[in-house]
Amino acid sequence: MTSTLFHPRVLTALALLLVGAGLSVTAWQGPADAMLVPRFVLAIWCAAALVVLIGELIRRAPMPRVSRSPLPLLMAAVLIAAVATASLGFLIPVLPLVALTLWLFRVRQPLWLALGTLILGGGLWFLFHHVLLIRLPTLLTNGLI
């Protein structure tokens, strides 16, 4: 039973139910007029999440094999780069992210890694920011980088 509770699908359904319930509290505390539709939507959300949770508990799907993967590292890098863009501009967070992505996808020869990072990271940034003049977030106020 305990192993069933810790199944990722059960945990996902449980998390969705808890998020729905939490948002429902916010919706019921808000102004009635503006929150009319959100309350209705959240009621359906919670009902669906509850049924999905019960379904996942009944189904007792086999536990997936736990393996050590650097995927959380890639996810964290994406999130950190996204958050850092507001303060560091676009180019600086994106270069290490592209390099890490290439490395994790087995592009490990130093020359290809450097070229890939420069072309995909720096090259595309230059193309959009300086050639196509689609302004991406910048570090310096003059917009150079």
């Binding site: 992210l97 592209v98 290439l102 490395w103 996808f105 991406l136």
Partner: peptide, 20 residues
């Protein structure tokens, strides 16, 4: 072409697409 270059490109285009 190694898959890494395709995935690196997707990450870059995704970031540019989202922020622009």
């Amino acid at each position: 072409l190694p898959q890494g270059f395709v995935m690196g490109g997707i990450v870059m285009f995704s970031f540019i697409g989202a922020v622009s």
